[in-house]
Computed example of a mutant assay.
Amino acid sequence: METFPTELGVLTCLMILAASLWIPYIIGVNTAPDGSLPADAPDGFVRISNPSLHRPWVQRAYRAHLNLLEQGVPFAILVLLVDRLDGFTALTYWTAIAFFWLRVAHAVGYITAGARLPLRPIIFVLGWVCCLLMAYAVFAARTG
């Protein structure tokens, strides 16, 4: 029986996070207190699909979800490429773990406004560095 690589387990958890990060936004949209939306705000889908109409934390929840997708999809593809090339190493192990926790910290910090400048952009850039490290692992596995 083959072992399940940690990187794929972390990727699974990351995709669960990505698939679930819409929940804070929808909760925020559907719990808007009376009078918190402009009087001329449309009803229904248009209201839900326009984050600028909502409270600041709801807007941040929307952006946190998009930010995770912006980095999570490329990272996931890179992990799958490394898996395909049988290139998992200590570097990919720690990069996957770091990326997951950076994305959790980014989402929580963004939604709660606890991670302000310069912390939130630093976390985002560190996630990008993780993508670069995983891309390096793809090329290292390909030439190795």
Rank of each mutant, 00 (worst) to 15 (best):
Q59V: 14
I48M: 11
V82N: 11
L68K: 00
N50E: 13
I77F: 09
A76L: 09
G72C: 08
R60I: 12
L78H: 06
A76G: 15
L68Y: 07
H65L: 08
Q59A: 13
V58T: 14
Q59H: 03
V73M: 13
R84T: 08
L78I: 11
P74R: 03
Y62C: 14
R60C: 11
W57V: 00
I77A: 15
L53G: 03
G72A: 07
P51N: 06
V82E: 07
L68F: 10
L53H: 04
I48W: 02
V58Q: 01
W57S: 04
Q71S: 14
D83S: 11
L81T: 10
A61T: 11
F75P: 00
R84V: 01
R60F: 05
R84K: 11
I48V: 10
V82G: 12
P74W: 02
V79K: 02
R63S: 12
R55Q: 13
F75G: 09
S49W: 02
A64W: 06
N50Y: 03
H54D: 11
F75C: 10
L81M: 15
H65V: 00
D83M: 01
V73G: 05
N50W: 07
H65S: 07
E70F: 06
P56E: 07
I77T: 15
G72N: 04
L81F: 12
W57T: 01
Y62L: 09
D83Q: 10
W57E: 04
Q71T: 15
R60H: 05
L81C: 15
R63M: 14
L80C: 14
V82Q: 07
L66M: 13
F75V: 10
I48D: 01
L68R: 00
L66S: 06
N67P: 00
L80A: 12
S52D: 15
A64D: 05
V79Q: 04
L81E: 02
P74Q: 06
F75H: 13
R63L: 14
A61V: 13
N50H: 11
A61P: 01
S49G: 07
P56D: 04
R55S: 09
P56V: 10
V73C: 09
S49M: 13
H65F: 09
N67V: 08
Y62M: 13
R63K: 14
L66W: 11
A64N: 05
I48Q: 02
A64K: 06
P74L: 03
R55I: 07
P51K: 01
L68D: 11
R84F: 13
R63G: 04
Y62H: 15
W57P: 00
R55L: 14
L53F: 14
P74M: 05
V79R: 02
